[in-house]
Simulated assay, not measured.
Amino acid sequence: MAATHGDEFKRDAVRNALTSGLTRRQVASDLWVGLSTLGKWIRAISDEAKVPDRDADLLRENEPGRHH
């Protein structure tokens, strides 16, 4: 059975993914959620919040397949 995470958990996960300096993969692993799940949360919450340009840049930098 899949785990159900509350909105606060999801917001915290997205905040960590955007500001911690870790990759999405690292954040997802630390939180025991799938990478694709974290990506869905980031897209959903970013769309709701109309992500500032600086955070949108961070989102793009952390996309799978992008190397720094």
Rank of each mutant, 00 (worst) to 15 (best):
S20C: 10
W32I: 02
S20R: 07
K40N: 14
A44V: 10
P52C: 08
G39E: 14
I45R: 07
G21T: 09
L22N: 02
N62V: 07
L31F: 02
P64A: 03
L38D: 15
D55H: 02
A17D: 08
S36E: 15
D30N: 10
S46D: 04
R15M: 11
D53E: 09
G21W: 07
D47F: 06
E63C: 11
R54Q: 04
L31Y: 05
T37N: 11
G34N: 09
G65F: 04
L58W: 09
V27T: 12
A28S: 12
L18T: 04
K50F: 06
A44P: 14
R60E: 14
I45D: 00
L59H: 00
R43G: 09
R24D: 01
L38T: 11
W32V: 08
G65A: 10
E63M: 12
R25A: 13
P64V: 03
W32L: 14
D30F: 03
V51M: 14
P64F: 02
R43N: 13
L18G: 02
W41V: 08
S29G: 08
T19H: 14
A28H: 02
D30C: 05
S46L: 01
A17G: 15
E63T: 11
W41E: 04
R24P: 00
R15S: 04
L22K: 03
L59S: 05
S20V: 14
G21A: 10
L31D: 02
D53P: 00
R54Y: 07
R60V: 15
V51D: 01
R15A: 03
D30S: 15
S36L: 13
R43Q: 15
L59Q: 06
G34E: 11
G34S: 13
S20K: 08
R25E: 04
K50G: 06
P64M: 00
W32D: 15
K40F: 05
D53L: 01
L58C: 00
L59E: 06
N62K: 15
A49D: 13
L22H: 01
R24M: 06
S46V: 00
D47S: 14
D55Q: 07
A49V: 05
D55G: 00
T23R: 04
S20M: 07
G65N: 09
L59N: 05
T37K: 12
L38F: 14
W41P: 13
L59A: 08
I42G: 00
A28G: 13
Q26T: 14
A28V: 09
R24C: 02
L58Y: 04
V33E: 01
R43F: 03
I42P: 06
T19M: 15
P52A: 07
R25M: 06
A28D: 01
W32F: 09
R60F: 15
K40W: 03
L18W: 12
V51W: 03
E61N: 04
G34K: 05
V33M: 03
K50P: 02
R54E: 07
S36W: 01
L38S: 13
